[in-house]
Design a protein around this nucleic acid. Structure first.
Lengths: 337, 337
DNA sequence: CGGGATCGTGTGAACGGTCACGTGTGTGCG
DNA sequence: CGCACACACGTGACCGTTCACACGATCCCG
């Protein structure tokens, strides 16, 4: 309905100029056009615009899990919050796609590819990389958040060194029986990096970790609770627990409280992520901070940069992680008997 | 690049037919076209398609808060999870827009309107209705989730009766000093409905609520904790607490535990929403179930129905809420002294 | 006082699809 | 054996923008 708009005197390409505030349009003409647009309550059509410009100003976000489970994880919550902010600041829209039940590994990507509706895609690493390959084949610029093997730019926390320093911290406090509550997907790269960090800290200190003390959970509070239950049912229970996210650490703390085991006097607990609630617990949780929101922001900025023509090499940007020592860790209690 | 596709023998409108699997195309031709599409790795352009069809097959979702705070609320998590599922099932895409800091009440809606990129909009009620009006003026079909005054179809839980039955439950257990932990936005309609329900339960029983025992929070665990602290600092503390969401109820329970007050023996606690974790607490939380996911699904279905031509009157669909009695409520302890 | 920049605006052709038709085959029927 | 009709496919126009140009004024300067 642009011929309606040029009822305001001029011909409709001039209106286009005004909209894209290109130069080469007289101030008064501009005013006239703007007024007409306002009067007629005119909104340009993105469809036509993106057809002509061959871009949509929309970026896609593919989630590793259904919306309700993805966002239940505080880390994803934060990263995606960061993405959203940057995306909005730069006047892009955000199109989300989440996997369905039938094909968790690929459906979200596939849906994103099928309709050519976005300029680029941010993917939260979670499952394998086949989905990412799909997107690349389809010609999308892609940046990943988290640990991926695919040859795309990515941003991720330094999982290994985070795990390393957390373990080191516990070792320094005298702990020898350190339990891990890891994730249950052995092929997850972030998971592997963290395990590597833990083990390396052990061997570096000449005190290798007890592999029997590795339990797994689903990154939920409940699964942390259950994993802790298994660990503390053992004949010789651990004196410290390092969980691979805060939710599981909180679950473990809950179990310890139920069993009347004091944290940190009897058992130390360390989390991962530094969720907002970590600081508010009693005792406040010692945890590895990974700057989730920054991760998301950085990913979004990288992608937008790529869309604007910046060449970005397909290497991961690694953001440092940082151990935040609070009240849930303490020296190992003196051995009795 | 459709002329590339009809390298496969036919002329490019036939390809269009194949894509939209319209009838009137010979099976073998169809096969030939499909093969060609596959060979050339062809994907139709949504832009062109939506230009020609005057629809985008995308629905917009406007959030009441930034992504990270919206999804931190379990209720929103569930509703939007429901929306997402239905949207995906019906082959629509989901475009999300969240408010920025400058103009929380309108920016998300405005951004949605500016680019005419969606066929219809689902809005999570939160702030006022001006944003919704904006969308209506722009000509969008809109359906709201939650309590709104605007003349649009909406789906919402029965807040009033939920609050009513929760209060009634506490009264029936003999509680007389019932504290409320409400939200802090007095003009929120859901909030008002819940308060109305509580009060009505009181007056119906001839035992009006003590208005002094109404504290407010921000629907977070921490704010529930703080509100409870204020309530239990009083000379004559309440014997029951009804929080307007589960997170605040959990916060209250945490405070009570810190103070050595047993739930439910000494104080009963009731939540609202029936978050998945509510059942997993110890003691398991008595709470008002509001079927959040169904709310979202229903909203999405309604909107999609509207997009397909169904006329939907601008009245709210009210889903019943239902009190789930678990272990956090018990008869008021016998008065001592 | 005329000619080349420069500025403001109009022109035509895409962009990649869909849709309402029109046309050429093959089939069934009288 | 010829007619009507269904079916398969091609034709042209259009959806609402942007873009590279062409064009006519205006301006500056020699």
């Amino acid at each position: 309905m642009r011929h309606v708009a040029d009822r305001a005197g001029v011909s409709y390409q001039t209106v286009s100029r005004v909209i894209n505030d290109a130069d080469g349009v007289a101030p008064q003409t501009r005013e006239r056009v703007l007024a007409a647009m306002r009067d007629l309550n005119y909104r340009p059509s993105v469809a036509a615009r993106s057809l002509a410009r061959a871009r949509t100003d929309t970026i896609g976000l593919v989630l590793p899990f259904p919306v309700d489970v993805t966002f239940a994880n505080a880390h994803f919550l934060q990263t995606i919050g960061g993405v959203d902010r940057v995306v909005a600041e730069n006047d892009y829209s955000l199109l989300v796609s989440s996997p369905d039940d039938e094909d968790p590994a690929l459906s979200a990507h596939r849906r994103m590819v099928r309709r050519r509706a976005v300029d680029g895609v941010i993917v939260e690493a979670g499952m394998g990389d086949e989905g990412i390959e799909l997107l690349i084949e389809a010609g999308y610029p892609v940046v990943a958040i988290g640990h991926v093997a695919a040859a795309v730019p990515s941003v991720r926390p330094d999982d290994e060194s985070g795990a390393y320093s957390a373990t080191q911290h516990l070792l320094a406090l005298g702990h020898r029986r350190i339990a891990l509550i890891a994730g249950s997907a052995p092929d997850n790269l972030a998971q592997q990096a963290r395990l590597r960090g833990c083990r390396r800290a052990g061997t570096d200190a000449g005190l290798p970790l007890d592999e029997d003390l590795i339990a797994t959970g689903e990154f939920s509070l409940e699964s942390g609770h259950e994993a802790a239950a298994r660990l503390f049912d053992r004949d010789v229970p651990p004196t410290a627990v390092l969980a691979f996210n805060d939710a599981m650490a909180i679950g473990a703390m809950r179990l310890l409280r139920e069993r009347g085991i004091d944290v940190p006097r009897e058992v130390s607990v360390v989390g991962f992520d530094d969720t907002p609630t970590a600081a508010l617990l009693t005792p406040a949780l010692t945890t590895v901070r990974i700057f989730s929101s920054e991760l998301g922001q950085r990913a979004a900025r990288t992608l937008i940069g790529m869309l604007r023509g910046t060449k970005v090499p397909p290497v991961p940007a690694v953001l440092p992680s940082q151990l935040v020592v609070r009240q849930s860790t303490a020296p190992v209690p003196a051995r009795r008997g």
